[in-house]
Amino acid sequence: MFATSNPICISDEIADMFIAVTIALLITMALTLARALLGPTLFDRLLAVNSFGTKTVLLIAVHGFMTGRPDFLDIALVYSLINFIGTIAVLKFFEYDDLGSGAYQEDDF
């Protein structure tokens, strides 16, 4: 159904392939979001958010191929890097209670 309006003409079977992956990714994202809402501890929520971000990257990439315009890959690339930096920043905040100072002290080890 998506293939008929494509600038690049791809066959219906190939579009079906990407639709199947998109549905699987959406189910995964729903389950991940459920864990983010349920999660008893903060780290469960953080894990769910990180996993949700990875799935978003894959979803953007697959959606670009599904509609026949793989131009959204730049956005997916940027999103994967931002997702990683965001997770590390939140973890650093909870480890040191500060984003700025954060140097390891020799006495800790």
Binding site: A20, A24, L25, T28, T32, L47, A48, S51
Partner: peptide
């Protein structure tokens, strides 16, 4: 798809 959905169910 199998990997992705399995991981979500495991989570």
């Amino acid at each position: 798809c199998v990997f992705v959905v399995t991981g979500a169910v495991g989570m």
